[in-house]
Every structure is written in structure tokens, then in C-alpha cells.
């Protein structure tokens, strides 16, 4: 379980996060929703210790993050985290060189799943394919937790579909996933849990199936209530 407790973060004078708390379970897909600039990415970076928080705590399976945690949790930002002049094969080799959790057979499987050619240079790829390589490099790690920042934004519809397929496959199964999005529509049926953010706080945290079962409301219904009510 990933526990985020009372995260606070200021950028200059702007209070981006003002006491954000939520949990994300292993085996579930948790979705952070909020308009752009609400601090979703900052939360993910905070969990990965890629940007310092002013206060608050983060526990991953009850422990603070250390260098070894990077074998258990990985972050897939919205831009590729590899050197663009590398080929896909070189990028995969890089990952294999440093991560014990790198799973080459899964990487190969993902390559064919996404129909990518490993001799291609990253810089020569289309936007959609670059996003897929980015995803591949994270998904091929045998980690318990995956954080994905806007995996669906800015790419073509077919790439979106392919990426959505990943979420219903064994590639994500049994792992804990946190994704951020400002556009819930396509993925409502994929997610287990929703965390609605605004003005630096969590407005609501709920399970999607429970919400449908108990109150007969869709995620968008709840968002309408929370943001406009």
C-alpha cells in the first residue's frame, strides 16, 4: 500500500499541495483526478522523491523511500525518461544494466504488443510510439507499484486504445497503480478508486464500484457534484 499523509508543497508563494492524504492499494488502479496545475504530477514526484515536500509523509508498504525502493516502485512521467538518441534496444539495455527488477521477456512481449521495432531511434518515433516506449520501460520492471502521469494525454486514439488494453492485461494485474488524468471518460470502467483533488486538498476519495452500487452515480456524476456543487 502507498500511504500519502498530509503532503504540503509550496512553489514560491503558491501553495500547490495543502495537506493531501490518500492511500493506494496493491492490486488496484487508483486515479488522481483534477484540472491541470492542481498538483497531481507533484504528488507523484513527491512519492518518488523527485521533488522535496515542505511537509508530510509517504510510506510504501509501511516504509520510507530509499534507493532500494526504486526496485519496487516506478514512475512513468508524461515525457520519455530516456536519451532521445538511443534506440529502443539501447534504452532497454540501459534498464537491464541497472535494475534487478527488469524483466526482459516481458519487455519483448511489450515490444510486440505495442508493435515497436527495437532498432528504431527514440527521437524518430511518433508521439504515440514514444509514449508506448516510455510505458514499456516502466511496465517491464517487475515492480509492485506503478505511477503513471497522464498516460492518455496528447496521443492518437489507437495508441490510447492500446494503452488502455495494458490496464486490463496481466501487465498491470496484481500491481498497485496510480494514474493521473484530467480526462476520465475513456477509463471510467478501468479504475478501482478515485481521488478528486482541488486547491491542494483531496475533495473526495471513493471506490468506483461502491459509488455505482450504493448511490448509482458515475465518476463524472460525483465530479459534477463535488466541483460544481
Amino acid at each position: 500500500m502507498i500511504e500519502v499523509k498530509e503532503l504540503k508543497k509550496k512553489f514560491g508563494r503558491k501553495q500547490i499541495l495543502n495537506g493531501v492524504s490518500f492511500t493506494a492499494n496493491k492490486g488496484e488502479i487508483t486515479c488522481l483526478i483534477g484540472i491541470n496545475g492542481v498538483g497531481k504530477t507533484t504528488i507523484l514526484k513527491g512519492i518518488m522523491n523527485l521533488t522535496p515536500m515542505n511537509s508530510g509523509q509517504i510510506f510504501i508498504d509501511g516504509k520510507n523511500l530509499s534507493k532500494d525502493t526504486y526496485e519496487k516502485i516506478t514512475f512513468i512521467p508524461d515525457a520519455i525518461t530516456m536519451i532521445p538518441t538511443m534506440t529502443i534496444a539501447q534504452a532497454m539495455q540501459f534498464m537491464q544494466d541497472y535494475y534487478k527488477s527488469w524483466n526482459q521477456s516481458r519487455a519483448t512481449e511489450l515490444l510486440s504488443f505495442f508493435r515497436l521495432k527495437q532498432e528504431d531511434k527514440i527521437s524518430s518515433l511518433s508521439k504515440g510510439n514514444t509514449a508506448k516506449v516510455n510505458l514499456l520501460l516502466g511496465l517491464a520492471l517487475d515492480v509492485d507499484y506503478l505511477l503513471m502521469d497522464e498516460p492518455f494525454s496528447g496521443i492518437d486514439i489507437f495508441s490510447r486504445e492500446q494503452i488502455a488494453n495494458v490496464f486490463t492485461s496481466h501487465l498491470v494485474e496484481d500491481r498497485g497503480v496510480i494514474i493521473t488524468t484530467h480526462e476520465i471518460n475513456d477509463i471510467e470502467h478501468l479504475i478501482d478508486k478515485v481521488v478528486l483533488l482541488d486547491n491542494g486538498i483531496v475533495l473526495k476519495e471513493f471506490s468506483t464500484e461502491e459509488m455505482r452500487e450504493d448511490e448509482g452515480k458515475s465518476v463524472v456524476d460525483v465530479m459534477r457534484e463535488v466541483y460544481q456543487g
Binding site: G27, A164, N165, F167, T168, S169, E173, H189, D192, E209
Partner: peptide, 17 residues
Amino acid sequence: RRELANQLKINPNTAQR
């Protein structure tokens, strides 16, 4: 359950349920 999740584009946990 995994195949079903994939076919219907739903969460595997939901298919399981």
C-alpha cells in the same frame, strides 16, 4: 477473468467480482 476484462475493457478486479 483476464480475457473478459480485456474484451470488455474493464478492470480485472471487477471481472473477478
